[in-house]
Amino acid sequence: MNSVLSAIVYVVSLAVAVYALVEALVDRPPGRIQVVGLGLVEAAVLALSVGVLVDVIGGGRPAETATFIGYLLTTLLLPPAGVALARMEPTRWGSTTVCGAALIVPVLVVRLGQVWHG
């Protein structure tokens, strides 16, 4: 797995998580910045997926294919789910949800790396 693209996902998602946490703490609903932030996280995860695809075309294979695909799909699904829930909950708890989604993405990417290398 591409370590530069993984690092970009970590940085972007953790930045969004911190920002959303601060907004939740000061009792603010998720605004445009959080939504755009999750969009950037999704873009970074998509870039990582393309990197994985290039690796696979080059002959690389994850150690556990089914698990890897499951984690990758979950990671791709999380930012849109975060945006949808943030829209439904225009309170500090919407910001809390965005923070949670943005925290889980890097955890999943760590797991993706472990599953890839076996």
């Binding site: 789910a81 975060g82 829930l85 909950e89 309170t91 919407g94 949800t97 949670g100």
Partner: peptide
């Protein structure tokens, strides 16, 4: 609603 929505997530 509220914290409940976070729990559901």
């Amino acid at each position: 609603t509220g914290p409940g929505r976070v729990l559901i997530f």
